[in-house]
């Protein structure tokens, strides 16, 4: 864990330097989300840099997961849900009617709160994305994608001899890493993680956090978490949500050591939430 914290301190410095310079990967402007009549998210605007980890924190029901699900348009699957405002990835509006949601989701992977491997073999779980998006042309291609994805997810050594066993037979932590491998198999640009460790024990959580730290070299990662320690450990930037609004956003160290808003301070010092 110590090395993780050290690495993390370096990373923050880098991120702070980089944040102002590079153009944002994901950019949201005045995003509102309605569930029927209820307004769940109010005028959220935020810029998320590439090759780094951004964490969303806040009390339950504050809208952080709702916002996360806007970025790959998962909210489309909820009939009563309506999104207004503008979200862009690389300056491309993802709510553009001409854009196909299938292609969007190939670029924006997602990992869920509870590990949800498909009831298929470990191999098939990872091969699923490349297959439906036609990324491989031969069995050898596919084998390579599966292997490299599992390697990147730190799972290859554990499962290489049982690729044909069911993905649902593994431990919770392994299942979650399998879901991460599944997500990165289609080589996305952004990876969304919705409380990826909340169903895991501390050891499995530490492994996932190491993995996230590893993955940020190549991906833009956005993570929703309930654990402020986790946000502090893995992310370079943090956004605090409260009652459907984005209260404060900035470098993680800033948010945790020197929050500007009273509500942020109350939350991180444990006064509510």
């Amino acid at each position: 864990m110590h090395t993780l914290v050290d690495k993390h301190a370096d990373a923050v410095v880098h991120a702070n330097l980089a944040a102002g310079l590079s153009t944002p990967k994901v950019s949201a402007k005045d995003v509102n989300v309605y569930y029927g009549e209820k307004r769940a998210l109010m005028d959220v605007s935020v810029d998320i840099p590439d090759r780094g980890v951004m964490s969303f924190i806040g009390p339950s029901g504050c809208g952080k997961s709702t916002f996360l699900r806007c970025i790959n348009r998962m909210n489309d699957t909820i009939p009563i849900c309506r999104v207004t405002g503008k979200i862009t990835i690389d300056n491309q509006d993802i709510y553009d009617p001409k854009l196909d949601v299938v292609q969007l989701r190939a670029r924006v992977g997602m990992v869920f709160q509870k590990p949800n491997p498909f009831p298929k073999s470990i191999y098939e779980n990872v091969a699923y994305g490349p297959r439906i998006h036609g990324l491989s042309h031969s069995k050898a291609d596919l084998d390579e994608i599966v292997q490299s994805s599992l390697e990147k997810a730190g799972l290859w050594k554990e499962v290489k001899d049982r690729l044909n066993e069911s993905g649902t037979g593994m431990s919770g932590g392994q299942q979650q890493r399998l879901c991460i491998a599944r997500a990165i198999a289609v080589n996305p640009e952004v990876i969304l993680m919705d409380e990826p460790c909340s169903a895991l024990d501390p050891i499995a959580t530490a492994r996932i956090e190491e993995l996230i730290d590893e993955l940020r070299k190549n991906f833009c990662i956005i993570i929703v978490t309930h654990s402020m320690q986790q946000a502090a450990r893995v992310s370079q930037r943090t956004a605090f949500f409260h009652l459907g609004t984005l209260v404060e956003e900035g470098p993680t160290t800033e948010i945790f050591t020197n929050p500007k808003d009273k509500r942020t301070q109350d939350y991180i010092t444990g006064r509510f939430g």
């Binding site: 790959n72 998962m74 989701r105 190939a106 949800n116 009831p119 439906i132 599944r182």
Partner: peptide, 19 residues
Amino acid sequence: SLRDGAYAMGATKSETIKQ
């Protein structure tokens, strides 16, 4: 959660149902 997993991979509705 299984359906969500498939949708998030970019599977279409019919792919999700079939596979």
